[in-house]
Computed example of a mutant assay.
Amino acid sequence: MTVHSYVLSQQEFVDRHSLTYPFEERGLQFGDGVYEVIRVYNGDYYLKKEHVDRLFRSAEAVKIKLPFTKEELDANLRQLLSQNNVTDDAKVYLQATRGSATRDHAFPTVEANFYAYVEDLPRPEDKLRNGVSAILRPDERWQNCYIKSLNLLPNVLAKQEAKEHGAYEAILHRDEKVTECSSSNIYIVKKGTVYTHPETNQILHGCVRGRIKQLACQDNIPFVEAAFSVAQLMDADEVFVTSSTSEVMPIVHIEDQRIGDGKPGPITCKLQHAYAADAKIADYSMLQS
């Protein structure tokens, strides 16, 4: 793995090992911040505008004033890839917090802290080709999941349970209604129609989710935003999840039950190809047709 040396911090580029913040940093002490993860393919951002827009929406929702404009951030993110000579597949992590100040629950009068860094991220080709498994868990998160905040402990615990069970994801549900997963949006396919939870405060409004909706419409795939039950999930013809790191990932087993014939279904594969073409991924012939 390439070690990328430069981190964007407060609109300056510094060596990753020299980046420090005071111990009284509100992201550290309160989880008082927001973040984004942007995918990079062949050295170029994918859905950057959507991610930047969502970062600003999340910051506004929690009353953090970001120390830059969207245009300034856009220019700096392009420079971040250039500074690190990124030409392959990667991800960029961005984090903004309310700042550093003496610990107090009320907002301090300080400037927000911000940093962004890049890491290599190879595509999960084997998983995309063959599908993955998932477990079911109650959704124990707060009621404002549309904010991409740093308060991720319930997500972390759910993802760890999935890992301990040899699964890729944990599918979350409230009162038997499926919301999303620990780190991705979820969809079912029934009789050729895609269903996914509507954009309410109970789910993250995924950037890839938004693009998949567009791609489905372009390919004349019926796409319905409506909550579905755990029973409907288990009876689905196909199940898949999306995120910047998972792309369009088929779920072929949930708990001990096979979904469909236990292989990625035709609608999922069609959307995988549409996503890959939209992202200008150079070689996606490994996917099933």
Score class of each variant (00 low, 15 high):
N84A: 00
C207S: 10
F107G: 04
N76E: 11
E125L: 12
D139G: 13
S182Q: 01
D219M: 12
H197V: 12
D120R: 09
K177F: 05
R26G: 03
S100V: 08
N201D: 14
D235Y: 06
V194Y: 04
N201A: 15
R123V: 15
F114A: 02
N185V: 02
E140T: 15
N130C: 09
A106Y: 11
N130F: 10
Y21N: 03
H253S: 11
Q218E: 15
L136M: 14
W142F: 08
A167M: 04
F56V: 12
L19R: 12
I38A: 08
Y35R: 07
L153T: 11
A61R: 09
A226Y: 06
R26T: 03
V86A: 01
V178W: 05
W142S: 09
H165W: 11
H4L: 06
V40T: 10
G206W: 01
R54F: 01
V3I: 13
P222T: 08
P154T: 09
M1P: 07
M1R: 05
E247P: 01
G43T: 08
R137A: 07
Y146V: 03
P266I: 04
I64F: 01
C207G: 04
R16I: 01
L271P: 04
D139C: 09
V252Q: 02
I64N: 03
V230M: 06
A236I: 00
A101G: 10
Q272M: 11
G262F: 08
T2C: 07
H197C: 06
V132F: 00
Q160R: 14
I188T: 09
V178Q: 02
V7Y: 13
N151R: 10
S285T: 15
D104L: 15
Q29A: 11
P266L: 00
Q29F: 04
K190V: 12
N84G: 02
D53N: 15
A90N: 08
L157I: 14
S244E: 01
C217V: 11
A90R: 04
E199Q: 15
C269Q: 14
V110P: 09
T193P: 04
L172T: 01
S5V: 07
E125Y: 09
V92S: 01
T200F: 02
A274L: 11
A162C: 10
V248M: 08
A276D: 00
G210E: 05
V110C: 08
Q232T: 13
E71I: 09
N113W: 07
I171N: 00
A274I: 08
F223P: 11
A116M: 07
Y195G: 04
A216P: 11
D120K: 09
S18Y: 05
V3C: 07
C145W: 00
Q257V: 09
V110A: 08
L150K: 08
D32H: 09
Y195C: 07
A227K: 12
Q160Y: 10
Q202V: 00
Q202S: 12
E169V: 00
E12N: 14
D44T: 13
E247V: 04
L215S: 03
